[in-house]
Simulated scan of single mutants.
Amino acid sequence: MSKLISVLVLYLCFDLAHQYRGQSRSIADKEWDFLIFTQQWPSSMCKVWTHNKPKHHCVFPKKADSWTVHGIWPTKKGTKGPFNCNTTWLFDPEQVRPIESELEQAWTNIEKETSLYNLWAHEWNKHGTCAAMIEPLNSQLKYFSKGIDFLNQYHMNDILTSANIVPSDTNPVKAEEVSATVASKIGVRPFIACEFEDGVQYLIELRVCFDKQLNLKECEGEHEVNGVLTNCNIAKNIIYPTALPPANLQIVQLHKFINWLQWFTL
């Protein structure tokens, strides 16, 4: 009998240790070191969305020449992610209803053929649930409100225009100038993201990093070329394309209503 009890005790200890190791790995998998705040240029995003896709169309904010939020991404140094830290805490449009009109302009879903809430749902489910480990971002309303706050505080329109870096389909920009301009205004270098379409290199995103206290910091672990954090080929022209005209407001409102019905009837 005593041997049986001993075996049971050993089994229980082993099982508890296994569960603890699993929980520890699970917690470690959700840890992150800093946040990447990403702004996107709608005209470039539209070119990517519609490239070789004639049925794809774009939705722009009312101010079409405005950078918009792509996301706030918790990141562990030397890797990507974590992602999807709580698969039971899904995006709920009702949680951001108080700021929805602001989000439509500041955090615009360019992809017209998708749900109005598609981008927000993706960003919250994948990134927001991980960012929620810190108090300033621990709800959907806080997470998306902070994105709007960051955009207003570090708006790339104002920063680039101050150095006469403006959209043009013919006059390329230099990554070195973009980097130096942003750094001179906010004190840290941005990560400059480009995308090639039909052999043309477009400026598509600008990213800046924050620590867990939401203080600006240098982005770590990013590709660096000649002192510039970028994935762009700095030896080739970089086009910062002219802002496209905003979509017809009535069409946008109809699109919004249809997508609201889709979410409401889920």
Rank of each mutant, 00 (worst) to 15 (best):
I148V: 15
Q253E: 14
L141Q: 07
F210P: 00
K55T: 12
E113W: 08
P172A: 02
K142N: 06
L8Q: 09
V7Q: 10
N171L: 14
M156P: 00
H18I: 09
Q105I: 05
T161N: 12
W120E: 00
Q19H: 13
E104I: 10
K185W: 03
G81F: 07
S145R: 12
V228N: 02
C13T: 11
G22I: 10
K62C: 05
G187F: 10
I72K: 03
L116A: 05
D198M: 08
N52M: 08
V96E: 08
Q201E: 14
T50C: 11
L214F: 14
F91G: 06
T38E: 01
I234C: 04
S2N: 13
G187W: 10
T38K: 01
E100A: 13
W107K: 02
R97K: 15
W67K: 06
W124M: 06
K146Q: 15
A180D: 14
R207Q: 14
S66I: 01
N226S: 13
Q40S: 14
T170W: 04
F191E: 09
F14W: 13
N86I: 09
L261A: 10
T230Q: 08
L254E: 11
Q105W: 06
K53L: 10
P98N: 12
G147P: 00
A106W: 07
Q253Y: 09
W260G: 03
E220G: 05
L8V: 11
T68G: 06
W49H: 09
K3A: 13
L244M: 13
D149C: 08
C13H: 03
G22T: 10
E197I: 15
L137R: 05
A247Q: 14
I238G: 02
I239N: 04
